[in-house]
Design a protein around this nucleic acid. Structure first.
Lengths: 214, 214
DNA sequence: AGATATCCATACCAACTGGTCGGTACGATT
DNA sequence: AATCGTACCGACCAGTTGGTATGGATATCT
């Protein structure tokens, strides 16, 4: 079973290269992935690569953009939006993220989180594309968080819907790092559980005595 | 001001190379850092490099080990251990981590968190060294967390002192990624504040109605 | 003083790197 | 039928990569 196997053959060379980028960059990092690696995994030649991408960096940017689009669709179609209560939608999102932690490590980790670590100083264009992907995704959570706050008449508590949405992304990105280090998804699942517990505590009514009791 | 400037001249070639590794790998990643880069930044020649390290991968392992030792000293000598109450020590640790988020991005980010992302599949020896550094650091927090739980008679709440210690590391690692993406430390500080709020809520007495109110 | 081991510098290498280039296949337009 | 634009091929290039071979300086031991 080679990398090539997972790339459908009817895709265009450009899409095959982007799909190969998803796999390879998440496995070996951006610098660790060579143009030849990408071509081999995509089953195309170097000529095809530089026909579609001006440079390796251009593929990095395109991969980050495509990642934003891909994950945008994935989460837009996810079932958690069906909940009537906005807090249920947000916790449903967390449950959905928890469910996504299945299969092999390179499959559930985040492309842009991996890529931005290596490129934030050396390739500003890639960093900007990664930033847009992360922040754009976090922004999709804000309305539900804000609505949950409003519904409970929660005034200024020193944090905003936006900061909680970004904190959620930080927990997930950090969970991926620990999962890679330990080569086990367990630690990531437990970290998401801690985040769920935090959200439950934040939104539990002040008088509720049993909020954190198991 | 070049990279060389920050490396003291009286250090041994080996230590200079490790110090250069701290800076360069955190800035450009492991794959993005070349042996020549390391030699230039350390002000030594390639002969010196391969005298002290069998390979580039060996330097990666040594850098992760040295990182564990370096951060071990840093946190062992930090002031938060002086608190009498174990919960104060743990929250003092979080405050200390928050204070460390000063200066330039490459200076306060984590070497092993950056390195493990790229090497967890391709260089198991480096991954293991990074894992030991992260888990070893998390383990230093466990006794205080456990003591804080015991002092409050907190039974099984679905989480352990160890899982909270690891969650703390996940939040920090994720905060670094978001800071790199946004090129701003603000998001990292706010994520640490969320973590502090979570800990406060976890350890607040069940009847305390004003736990999360600002 | 001589032997030995450590530490480091210079010169070098084969493999690989991102990127270029001339050329081909082919459908749409004129 | 001639022309053009897009998609693609694969050999090739200059520079870089991690790593090696070898010799010299210095300190230590006998």
């Amino acid at each position: 079973m080679t990398d090539t196997d997972i790339i459908p053959t009817q895709m265009s060379a450009r899409d095959k290269l982007l799909a190969a980028g998803f796999q390879l960059i998440r496995s070996k990092g951006y610098s660790g992935t060579t143009v030849d690696d990408l071509c081999a995994a995509a089953g195309v030649t170097k000529g095809a690569f530089f026909h579609h991408f001006r440079s390796k960096e251009a593929l990095g940017v395109a991969a980050a953009d495509f990642w934003a689009e891909f994950t945008g669709r994935l989460f837009a179609e996810a079932p958690y939006h069906a909940h009537a209560d906005p807090l249920d939608r947000f916790t449903g999102y967390l449950d959905f993220r928890r469910q996504l932690l299945a299969g092999e490590l390179p499959d559930y980790t985040c492309l842009v989180g991996t890529m931005v670590q290596e490129t934030y100083l050396t390739a500003p264009a890639i960093r900007d594309a990664c930033e847009a992907s992360i922040s754009g995704h976090a922004r999709t959570l804000e309305p539900d968080i804000q609505a949950a706050m409003d519904a409970r008449g929660m005034g200024d508590r020193g944090w905003t819907a936006g900061s909680l949405a970004l904190h959620t992304q930080a927990v997930l990105q950090g969970a991926f790092i620990l999962a890679k280090a330990q080569d086990s998804v367990t630690v990531a699942v437990e970290s998401v559980d801690h985040l769920k517990r935090y959200v439950a505590l934040l939104f539990s009514p002040p008088g509720g005595a049993t909020a954190g009791n198991g």
